[in-house]
Amino acid sequence: MIINNLKLIREKKKISQSELAALLEVSRQTINGIEKNKYNASLQLALKIAYYLNTPLEDIFQWQ
């Protein structure tokens, strides 16, 4: 199981879903879906999320 901390980290950094989506060149709905565990981010997208949030990938998506 993967624990998804994207919403928590994004909100801590005061970045909206729309802002993050624009940086990543995806839709806001994609970010929303990832945060609600409706969609799994591809490895490429997960790495981009970590880069733009300046946060280690394993802090955003944790295996349990």
Rank of each mutant, 00 (worst) to 15 (best):
Q62W: 09
Q62E: 09
K36T: 15
Y51L: 09
S42E: 06
K12T: 11
Q64H: 12
L24R: 01
N40H: 13
V26C: 10
K12A: 14
Q29N: 13
K7R: 12
A41V: 15
E35S: 03
E11W: 05
Q64K: 11
K13I: 07
Q44P: 13
L53Q: 02
N40V: 14
K12Q: 14
A41D: 01
N54E: 15
F61D: 00
K36P: 02
R10W: 06
G33P: 00
D59F: 08
T30S: 05
Q62I: 11
A50T: 03
K13M: 13
N5L: 06
A21T: 04
S16R: 07
K38C: 14
Q29P: 06
L57S: 02
I2G: 05
A21R: 02
I2S: 09
I3T: 13
D59R: 08
M1S: 07
I2T: 11
N37R: 08
Y51N: 08
G33N: 15
L8S: 14
S42M: 02
W63K: 07
I60S: 01
S42W: 03
L43K: 13
N32F: 05
N40R: 14
I9K: 01
A46D: 02
L57K: 03
L24C: 15
Y39K: 12
I3A: 12
A46H: 04
A22Y: 08
A22W: 05
Y52F: 14
N54H: 10
E25S: 14
L20W: 02
L6M: 10
K13A: 12
N32Y: 12
R28D: 11
A21E: 01
K7V: 06
I31M: 05
N54L: 04
Q62P: 12
N5M: 06
R28M: 12
L24T: 13
I2K: 11
K7F: 06
L8R: 13
R28I: 15
E11R: 10
L57W: 04
I15H: 03
N5S: 04
Q29A: 14
L57N: 03
N37F: 08
Q62A: 10
L8Y: 12
L20S: 00
L47H: 12
L24N: 00
L20A: 01
I60K: 00
K38A: 11
N5K: 07
S42F: 02
F61S: 01
E19C: 09
M1A: 09
Q62D: 06
N37W: 08
N40Y: 11
D59W: 06
T55W: 04
